[in-house]
Design a protein around this nucleic acid. Structure first.
Lengths: 333, 333
DNA sequence: CCGCAGAGTGCAATCGATTACGCAAAGCTT
DNA sequence: AAGCTTTGCGTAATCGATTGCACTCTGCGG
């Protein structure tokens, strides 16, 4: 094993002390120009690279950011992780990933580990709208933390997410325009902030549109919920003109299962999704969906986080990114 | 900020030296039973937790494993990451995740960073069947490394993946049984080992089944490839009895786009997928697909890796896990 | 009663980098 | 030319845990 080059070796080879070598490389202290050049040259030749661990011990900073998501298996979160990872790498940070599987205990355990590992910051999609708050507050007091997509309280820590109000309004106006007068909402329960917000947004906005509203169906954001909702809808007998789903997975699960029941979308029923995942745009019918600007959300969140990491003590911020509507086949007949 | 408790503080509180405190907590050295009890009690009371960074510096071991995947956005890889992460946590390791986006340069950059960060091991899905070999060999000489799903040479480092030969045979026999006599393969190009292996497996096995074979369509493993293949198939004019797809995404993209062309699966054409992602089982028609036992693959891979981490110098191993066939609607009329 | 084994601890070095402090030499001022 | 500032660099402390070596003390055989 080629034994990693240490600063000591570079210093020796350059004929200076470790202190000078360190300063020459970091460049932020007064060192003679020739010395800097010399040290840099030697370092390059020897292939020297700082040991991040030694540096972390000394500095108390790891240049690692931890991220916790509820289910990496959900393509939306996968894309979110991708975007976050991209932003972090751009800024020279690594990503430590953990999956809470939606469990509070696991979530708080991972948070603790992140704390012990002295990550510089944490990006979290809280698993519970309220019960995640305790652990978040505790860890957030020590380490910069940003909530993304979901929140456990916007006063708790910086938050970046989509504006669900706008999203639902876009979907509702769209189906209204397409003639839908009776609607059913299929979304997630009140465990997550998105679940609550989207439902509330639907509930409020739908009044404005003055249409008939059927009993909502609420589970989680998964395909399974969509499928179960399809069964329920069919069992009810009378189909609404349109279903507003709170996620693409729900919409896809719904459309798929409806088809098994002989109900075709958009022929018998219009459906809109939420998220704008890649997936929703390739299957037939393509989904009319509220597109979340994932890259923008990730960029904002990492922006917040890194400014905190850099020491900002600005008041807690909360940013809502406006979604757009992508019209696809599921509402076009 | 509650200033993390250090070993020194525990030692002081317990009236012993740091050395003794360390030994008492690690338990593997001779320390009087009372002392051990005392130190443990004090440590618990103070809420002491070792600083993983200090330990890492001293030990040269981080208890972190790095993982590189080509596209986290592909649900198959998302599930793989999930399974790997689960196995690692069980063993007390953290997961540092990186996405190579299928780019060689990025992949090798990430590998270097992992090396610098002194991860204890690396799990990689090599982005290129051959060109990934160099970087892998270099890093693998320093750090335990296991290839998963794809390989850049099974003699290079431990490898765990699915048995593609069996997988394709299962799919082929199945559609043959269902009466398909003319087939077309839609898969990935020769850039990845899975791409090559699945194509070769198809090519060899299809001979045995003695059927008519159309020009294959090869791109990558994505939805887009499936969609493009659908266009191509329709353009050719004559449809085969069945299409064997090399991934679920391909199959889904294909089915979706075919539908837009007015071609229904399974009515006009049978389709099989590969991977057994959750996704493939909820949409209509549900996919007949070769199911990869992802948990088993992950468990094997982490098993290999951790045995290396523990010091095993056994010869390079290569494990092939047998897939199973899940029959769904896409081949059932 | 001496000597030796071995249990139980502590001292101090170590991992590799960063940095406060101090010293020497060079540059400037009057 | 004496006195001061500035520049450049080295010494050593520091981050927190682990561990080789050495020391003390008890117990037991001879």
């Amino acid at each position: 094993m080629p034994h990693a080059v240490t600063l000591q070796e570079v210093a020796d080879a350059a004929g200076v002390s470790v202190a000078t070598a360190s300063r020459a490389l970091s460049g932020k202290n007064r060192v003679a120009a020739d010395t800097v050049a010399k040290v840099r040259a030697v370092a390059a030749e020897l292939g020297y690279r700082v040991d991040p661990i030694a540096r972390a011990l000394r500095e108390g900073s790891t240049r690692i950011v931890g991220m916790i998501v509820p289910v990496i298996g959900n393509p939306y979160f996968a894309q979110l992780v991708d975007a976050v990872e991209h932003e972090l790498h751009r800024a020279g940070f690594e990503l430590l990933l953990a999956d809470s599987h939606g469990e509070l205990a696991e979530e708080s355990r991972r948070l603790t580990v992140f704390g012990d590992r002295k990550v510089d910051g944490i990006v979290i999609v809280p698993s519970h709208r309220q019960r995640s708050a305790g652990a978040l507050r505790a860890v957030g007091a020590e380490i910069p933390l940003v909530q993304i997509d979901r929140s456990a309280g916007v006063s708790l820590a910086d938050y970046v997410g989509v504006d669900n109000e706008i999203g639902l309004a876009l979907a509702l106006e769209h189906v209204h325009e397409r003639g839908a007068r009776s609607l059913v909402y299929v979304g997630a329960d009140d465990v997550t902030s998105s679940g609550v917000e989207r439902w509330n947004a639907f509930d409020r906005t739908v009044d404005r549109e003055a249409v008939a509203v059927g009993e909502p169906f609420r589970g989680d954001f998964s395909l399974a919920t969509g499928a179960a909702a399809a069964d329920a809808l069919v069992a009810r007998g009378e189909l609404p003109d349109a279903v507003i789903a709170a996620s693409d997975l729900i919409a896809l699960g719904l459309i798929g299962r409806l088809r098994e029941h002989g109900v075709e979308v958009p022929r018998d029923l219009l459906v809109t999704g939420f998220d704008g995942t890649e997936l929703s745009q390739v299957l037939a019918p393509t989904l009319t969906t509220v597109v979340q600007p994932i890259e923008a959300v990730a960029a904002d969140a990492i922006g917040f986080l890194l400014s905190r990491v850099a020491g900002s003590t600005a008041p807690v911020r909360s940013s809502r990114v406006a979604p757009t509507l992508l019209v696809g086949g599921s509402t076009t007949r």
